[in-house]
């Protein structure tokens, strides 16, 4: 019994310490983000990495998601109310408010988040981070800041891209599979969603983009020696980021609901 309480207590303490360290990392990163020197070329390099790595899979997955969403909702609506005229509206709502931003963020996590954790973790265990410090370089400024800025910008761009592609594919599917005309799709869509929804999706993209590199770098910096160390850092960051994205999505959707 005692040992159960002990181990619960221990893991609570460990979690508190981890959260504290993460908050410290976040605050320091923010301070360095807004103070010179700015590493502009690094930011562009990272931005290219984020978009180039993720855009193809984001577009591919979002196309499938769009097709499934619209066909499924049409199928069910036809069963219930024998009419799927409202489907474009519902599908657009679902895409803009949830699907576009979340699906693209989860895909970015699997590419970029895992990539950063493995990269920083490898640098940690091969003493490259120590070497940076020895040569007078602050690893947070050098590694975390450019990735953070690139990932926030990339998050916004990819979220908007994913939403637009998703809507376009939904329209094509409804046109060729369900027999709605493009015009009627757009009219039905406009009744449910507005430009504001796209802005909110962009904000979500920015928030998800903010979390991804911070969590990945956090686990990368704590990476333990050995090949398992890097694997563990990667897995831990992907799991943590995915949970965070779902949680943040819930919180943001709840906040945004006051504006609709």
């Amino acid at each position: 019994m005692i040992s159960v309480i002990d181990s619960i207590g221990l893991s609570v303490i460990k979690t508190v310490i981890m959260v504290r360290d993460f908050v410290v990392l976040t605050l320091r990163t923010l301070v360095y983000t807004f103070t010179p020197p700015f590493r502009v070329s690094d930011i562009f390099k990272q931005l290219y990495f984020v978009i180039n790595e993720s855009a193809p899979i984001v577009i591919f997955c979002v196309c499938s998601a769009a097709a499934v969403t619209i066909i499924e909702s049409s199928f069910h609506m036809k069963i219930i109310i024998q009419n799927d005229a409202l489907v474009p509206g519902f599908a657009a709502l679902l895409i803009l408010r949830e699907l576009g931003a979340v699906v693209s963020a989860l895909l970015v996590t699997s590419r970029v988040g895992a990539g950063i954790a493995a990269e920083v973790g490898t640098m940690q265990i091969t003493e490259q981070i120590d070497a940076l410090k020895m040569l007078g370089i602050n690893p947070i400024r050098f590694l975390v800041v450019p990735r953070l800025i690139a990932s926030v910008i990339g998050g916004v761009v990819l979220s908007i891209l994913a939403n637009l592609v998703c809507l376009y594919v939904a329209m094509l599917v409804s046109q060729y599979k369900l027999g709605h005309s493009a015009g009627s799709f757009i009219v039905a869509m406009r009744a449910f969603v507005s430009m504001q929804d796209l802005y909110f999706a962009a904000i979500k993209g920015a928030c998800f983009g903010f979390v991804i590199p911070l969590v990945s770098c956090y686990f990368g910096f704590r990476c333990k020696a050995g090949a398992e160390g890097v694997g563990l850092a990667t897995t831990n960051s992907v799991v943590t980021i995915s949970i965070s994205i779902i949680t943040i999505d819930f919180i943001l959707s709840w906040i945004f609901s006051y504006f609709y």
Binding site: T126, E127, Q128, D130, A131, L132
Partner: peptide
């Protein structure tokens, strides 16, 4: 360092 620790 023990590792070469060069920047890749």
């Amino acid at each position: 360092f023990q590792h070469p620790a060069l920047f890749d």
